[in-house]
């Protein structure tokens, strides 16, 4: 009897602990997210938004006719805060004609990204990153200082405003279609 009472008591304790765990995990996650948002600079946040918006105006070839369609993958240099912020931002949004979700991944772990966001530091992992690219990957460069091969879109600043430059040739090579709405805002290379 005592043993049964003990088991019952232990089960209740276990449930309380599990509950507390999940509450703690949630709080942690929230704290992490909040921390990620607070860590990221305004410029990075803006760039994250731009990256999401690029997916809205660029159409990739439909190589995987799945239903529901597979998400558009954004490969970002290993930056958990950026990825977390991006994924939070794109959580309820869909892009393109196929209404695809957009998700950000670390370029170190992801293959076959539709859009690759590279920074200056990415040059070091060039070979590794390149191996994970497809022919349709659109490479977005963080700035004009980043000299990454086959870069299609390059961020730059103008009058303290973030702008971007599009290399139509690279887009063509990537076999993607950019909307005129995107093109009219861009500086065409």
């Amino acid at each position: 009897m005592e043993s049964i009472l003990f088991l019952r008591s232990s089960y209740r304790t276990y449930k309380k602990i599990l509950k507390l765990f999940f509450i703690g995990l949630a709080v942690l996650l929230l704290c992490c997210a909040a921390q990620a948002e607070s860590i990221l600079s305004k410029k990075d946040k803006l760039k994250a938004a731009y990256l999401l918006n690029f997916t809205r105006f660029i159409e990739w070839p439909n190589t995987t006719p799945e239903m529901p369609p597979a998400p558009i993958r954004i490969c970002v240099e290993d930056s958990p805060e950026f990825i977390l912020f991006f994924n939070q931002m794109s959580a309820n949004r869909k892009s393109g004609l196929r209404q695809q979700t957009v998700k950000a991944y670390s370029s170190n772990t992801a293959d076959g990204c539709e859009l690759l966001y590279v920074k200056e530091s990415s040059k070091d992992n060039f070979q590794k990153i390149k191996a994970g690219l497809t022919e349709n990957t659109v490479i977005v460069s963080d700035s004009e200082k980043v000299s990454f091969p086959a870069t299609a879109i390059t961020f730059y600043e103008q009058n303290k405003n973030l702008r971007f430059e599009i290399d139509l040739q690279q887009l063509n090579l990537a076999n993607v279609t950019a909307s005129s709405e995107l093109l009219k805002l861009a500086r065409i290379k």
């Binding site: 918006n53 405003n161 709405e181």
Partner: peptide, 15 residues
Amino acid sequence: GATSRSALLFNDKQS
């Protein structure tokens, strides 16, 4: 509206 949404999205007041 159609042509200005990208400007809104990309915060391009000039455009």
